[in-house]
């Protein structure tokens, strides 16, 4: 067989889960509970599984709700992206990638410029500030809390990248670690 994926890259020592494709709410329904159960049962993740699961769901829902490459399906929605849970030098890395439109890139850049390379304590303060802004603004229905929450949970500063493809499309990559 030509071009077989190297087992080294997809074995559980490296990769616990990886999903690429059009993610729907039903797909997330189907995989979320099972993933949580496995993470809760594994010695390496049984103390941290709740945070991993929380970040995983938040990133998966961002793809389902906002990824611009979409397919119209009845009674559900589908956005194209990838989401992985990986072993990374003693941490568990949760990574997501999806295409973004210019206005989405601008919105994300504002968020991540704020988050930047702040320390965990500073991120905690930033998150509370965002919560207060949501609380104090009588017209606010919230918004943008998701990445601040992910940044707060992450054991290392979250990393992100905007990758411009040859066809001009832009892909957003983001990783958090637990």
């Amino acid at each position: 067989m030509e071009n077989a994926l190297s087992w080294k890259n997809i074995a559980p020592e490296h990769q616990l889960y990886s999903f690429s494709g059009y993610i729907t709410n039903r797909v997330l329904d189907g995989i979320a509970a099972g993933i949580e159960d496995v993470l809760a049962a594994r010695n390496e993740t049984k103390k941290s599984y709740r945070k991993i699961f929380g970040i995983f769901v938040e990133m998966a829902q961002n793809i389902i709700f906002y990824a611009p490459d979409r397919v119209e399906i009845p009674n559900d929605e589908a956005g194209f992206g990838t989401i992985s849970i990986l072993n990374d030098e003693g941490f568990v890395r949760i990574h997501a990638s999806n295409e973004v439109l210019p206005h989405q890139k601008e919105h994300l850049e504002k968020i991540f410029d704020q988050i930047g390379q702040q320390s965990p304590d500073e991120i905690g303060t930033l998150y509370k500030q965002r919560m207060l802004e949501t609380f104090d603004d009588p017209n606010s229905r919230g918004g943008g809390l998701g990445y601040y929450d992910i940044a707060r949970k992450s054991s290392r500063p979250i990393e992100y990248l905007f990758e411009t493809l040859e066809n001009g499309k832009v892909v957003f990559h983001v990783s958090a670690w637990i």
Binding site: R50, T134, F135, R141, L145
Partner: peptide, 17 residues
């Protein structure tokens, strides 16, 4: 709650508000 997403955080904030 054993887990709630950031959207639900906004709902709870609004209950408190």
């Amino acid at each position: 709650l054993t887990y709630h997403n950031s959207g639900t955080t906004r709902v709870i904030i609004n209950f408190i508000k």
